[in-house]
Design a binder for these strands. Structure first.
Lengths: 204, 204
DNA sequence: ACAAAAAGCGAGCACCTAGTAGGTTTTCGC
DNA sequence: GCGAAAACCTACTAGGTGCTCGCTTTTTGT
């Protein structure tokens, strides 16, 4: 039986190569944005040619999509670490605060989110649908956690779960800009805790 | 006495022309960012050539600087309207809430700030110093207003003026991203009021 | 009305862009 | 170790970039 025409799958080192490219792409898109960042620049960092990169990722748009996907996979991993379950209520808030602390150790990731989410507000940007859906689900799930806390009497009087959720997410994003512009003067995690304290009857 | 070599100043319509160019530049930089937005694109909107634009603004960087300057001038105008004085304390907060409401009527301005401030987090971006200074003074002056309110007993217990100020600014910025991605579901001014309510002993 | 300055344009420079075509080198199942 | 597929490269296309040069047109003070 002939094997002509059958695919053989990628080679042993290919997965590592693709990860190298994704890491370089993250760096470039972080500091230059998607539209201004070039495949050439990414290729140089990995030490290969522009065409070599495009052998692994068919277009610049696909490269962007994979960078965002990889970031989500890593976040998912972090979030479900150990348990395999996404926490709800106060545990979810604690997790978000932990995430903010963690982010202070990976400025590249912060810059990627900051730059791309702003760029993606343009109507014709390829990542716009991605960010629309991302905020929608993020606000919804965080709102659910605030609602659970409300039922448990863990929220101060008059705090609306959905508004609190949206504001928390917005605060985290806004702090990133200020932090990236002046890392010494801004502690994102301290500020987030300061925001939450008046809203809760419990400590985070 | 000869007038050879003396300049004559610009023509009657020049000021209007420059304003047209600045308006077009605002549109382009808003939707494409500074690095990806092109002078050619700006020139097309005004109905003139690229070289014509560069006759009025010597470089793309200078054009950006003037766009930001024009925005600041307009904001200064709005802020000191009538009185000629910048308000402090609760009046300042009311003014900020009004600004947020006003911003909902000028999405272009919001997008400009959102896109450029994120882009300017890059170390080599020409607008980075501008935004660094802008946030520094904005947080400082807003913090001063919260401090004044604290002295007047207008702040809830445990609210730290400087943190409240930084968080308010961050919240305003973060809400802009969500609003630009989904204008129907997000009301920036409502969210800002919801943020302020638990912090104050008075109504804004 | 005239001359000089300002406004504006077309062409071109040197360079960068995403993506393609077709080739060579490397890997790897058999 | 052989052959085919994957990996990768050089060269290229068709286009865009900021900016300059030299020129023509328009405006304007005298």
């Amino acid at each position: 039986m002939s094997t002509i025409g059958r695919t053989r799958g990628s080679y042993a080192k290919t997965a590592a190569r693709r990860r190298e490219i994704l890491d370089a792409a993250l760096e470039v898109f972080s500091s230059s944005g998607f539209r201004s960042g070039s495949i050439r620049d990414i290729a140089d960092r990995v030490g290969m040619s522009q065409a070599g990169v495009l052998h692994h990722f068919r277009s610049k748009n696909e490269l962007l999509a994979q960078v965002l996907q990889a970031r989500d996979d890593a976040a998912w991993e972090r979030m479900h670490a150990g348990t395999g379950l996404a926490p709800v209520g106060i545990d979810r808030l604690r997790q978000l605060v932990d995430l903010v602390s963690f982010n202070e150790s990976v400025p590249g990731q912060v810059e990627l989110h900051c730059v791309l989410s702003a760029e993606a507000t343009a109507l014709d940007h390829p990542a716009r649908p991605y960010f629309q859906e991302r905020y929608r689900s993020l606000v919804a799930s965080t709102g659910q956690s605030f609602a659970t806390m409300s039922e448990n009497g863990q929220l101060a009087d008059g705090v609306q779960p959905l508004a609190a959720a949206r504001n928390l997410i917005a605060l985290m994003d806004g702090l990133q800009v200020q932090w990236l512009l002046d890392r010494e003067s801004v502690s994102m995690s301290d500020e987030v805790r300061a925001y939450l304290r008046p809203l809760l009857t419990v400590e985070v």
